[in-house]
């Protein structure tokens, strides 16, 4: 593990925006190889070519370079100060501006000129990990706008939850840039379910879920979603989603929150684990 230096944040911002994640490229390439719908295959070839150009030329994979979401996971016996966190946010802003990425935030009601201030930061504590993990997740709003939350009754059937997820994907449609990765968070409070859904997008999407029950559910949902015939650019075919990823957490006896956070095919994130964080960088 290395110490965090000033340039590390910029490297993460660049990696996230210019280099499509390897697991995504792998699943997209697999989809391209097996897709038989000609139009969908063409769309997949554009997506793969786009990823190559972006990486080679340091161009943003998508012009929507997102609202950057910063995940900080503090491991066992580690601590992080408020000024360190503010410094990380500042480095993200500087890296966006320096690398010609899009100004990412406006005041929600005034909607004046967009600026580089307003990244979203989540801090978590994980006693099972060492060091401090920092992940930059530029979340585009074509897909973010299709997020869903439903507060189910505790006695709801699994089939009803599955229907809600399938309907949400249908509603997302071609606007949210399929093939998607579907992040699902089940449990906790309303805010917690949606945050879990977003976190579900951060792990390797080509790995099976360690929980056997959830793994089966993910596979069943993926099969149903890929039977919707939406496909890349809405042109049909067998690839409306690349993966479904589910995370769960304990919840209240009176409820069952289900949050859905959809990612477009340009699922971008870059993370790295650091040993203690320097606070004095200006």
């Amino acid at each position: 593990m290395k110490r965090l230096s000033k340039h590390d944040i910029e490297l993460l911002v660049k990696e996230a925006n210019f280099s499509l994640r390897k697991d995504i490229v792998r699943l997209l390439s697999k989809a391209y190889a097996v897709e038989t719908n000609k139009k969908a295959k063409k769309a997949l070839s554009w997506i793969l070519e786009n990823a190559n150009i972006a990486k080679k030329e340091s161009l943003a994979i998508c012009q929507d370079t997102g609202l950057p979401v910063i995940f900080i996971e503090v491991g066992k016996d580690e601590s992080i100060s408020c000024s360190s966190i503010k410094n990380i946010e500042k480095q993200v802003s500087l890296a966006y501006s320096k690398n010609f990425l899009r100004p990412f935030a406006v005041l929600p009601l005034a909607r004046k000129s967009p600026s580089y201030k307003g990244a979203i930061t989540h801090v978590d504590f994980n006693p099972d990990k060492k060091g401090i993990n920092i992940t930059i997740f530029p979340k585009g709003f074509g897909s973010e706008n299709k997020s869903q939350l439903k507060m189910f009754n505790p006695t709801v059937s699994l089939a009803e939850i599955e229907d809600f997820i399938i309907e949400s994907v249908k509603r997302a449609g071609p606007e949210a840039c399929p093939p998607f990765v579907i992040g699902i968070g089940i449990g906790g409070t309303s805010d917690c379910a949606l945050l879990l859904a977003k976190k579900a997008l951060l792990g390797r999407i080509d790995f099976p879920n360690k929980d056997k029950f959830l793994d089966n559910l993910e596979k069943r949902l993926l099969k149903k979603i890929n039977a919707l015939n939406i496909g890349p650019m809405g042109l049909g075919g067998r690839h409306t989603a690349l993966a479904v990823k589910i995370k769960t957490v304990a919840t209240h006896i009176a409820g069952l929150p289900v949050g859905i956070n959809i990612s477009c095919h340009a699922l971008r994130s870059a993370g790295r684990r650091f040993k203690n964080i320097i606070t004095d960088e200006k």
Partner: peptide, 19 residues
């Protein structure tokens, strides 16, 4: 479309369609 800024050696940045 709302493109990203043009890097110094380019005409335009990334410029795909929006919803």
């Amino acid at each position: 479309c709302g493109p990203t800024k043009a890097p110094l050696d380019k005409i335009i940045g990334s410029c795909g369609p929006t919803t």
